[in-house]
Design a protein around this nucleic acid. Structure first.
Lengths: 133, 133
DNA sequence: ATTTTAAATGCAACCAGGTTGCATTTACAT
DNA sequence: ATGTAAATGCAACCTGGTTGCATTTAAAAT
């Protein structure tokens, strides 16, 4: 049961187990890809409070339960730590349905930066066509 | 003289040579890195009209004079075509001063995508420390 | 040099994502 | 059962960005 996992997650990070948080985590946990504010609001019901939603998204992000992705100027939120596999992180954006998926780490990357610049990590957006399209 | 280059650029794309556009292009051309709406507005003077600014940024982007970059949820605008070197494009974000620079193409990238996914191009954000910091 | 006209500007109104302050409510430790 | 710190709900606000419309202007036609 997902419920158990959510309870553990909240307790683990000393976040109170409220209806709001359980509903939000349930949604993000079941989503197979990153979701925007408006998608979350649509899913949880139009009566959900904007500030509570944002405050919880921030709270979850701070403790690493979710991470944010910015895509064409607006933000999407997805379950999981941003950099669970190291410093590099990649997302896949479907050119047809605009869905944003979180990918495993890039296997190997070479890139050149100008003299005087020091590269520490890379975040990549791969564009293409997803399995559903 | 930059003035000459700007005149050519505008004529080349059949855009009227207005004071507004010349000032905007002058600023973006002299900027060594990507600029946000608020930075542009600050540079051109607080009296510049918001819609004229956005309409011109869009117009310039459409013809390929500038390109946009989104960084932490807000957009920056930079001189030059987005994909002048092919399908892949990279930006460098300084972790200290937050400045966004446009980079040359990545030399070579390997990445794995799940079965059923088809990768067409990659856009990378390299994080590190810039030459100025 | 003057007229014409399509395009560009300036203005106001609007929308969405996101933040903040504050009073009320609620989870949970005692 | 009670106290308290934390979470919620609400309103007000901010910024980036868009749209419709009346006015102005660059530049082509005369």
């Amino acid at each position: 049961m997902e419920q158990i996992r959510i309870n553990d997650l909240l307790q683990e990070h000393r976040l109170k187990r409220t209806k709001f948080r359980i509903a939000l985590l349930n949604f993000l946990l079941s989503a197979r890809h990153a979701r925007s504010y408006s998608e979350i609001k649509l899913a949880l019901g139009q009566n959900v409070d904007k500030s509570s939603l944002y405050r919880n998204l921030s709270a979850f992000e701070e403790v690493g339960i979710i991470h944010r992705i910015d895509h064409n100027g607006f933000t999407k939120y997805a379950f999981g730590k941003a950099q669970k596999h190291g410093l590099n992180h990649a997302h896949f954006v479907c050119e047809q349905c605009e869905t944003v998926y979180c990918m495993e780490e890039l296997s190997s990357i070479q890139f050149k930066v100008p003299k005087g610049f020091k590269a520490n990590r890379i975040q990549a957006v791969i564009k293409g066509v997803c399995a559903a399209c």
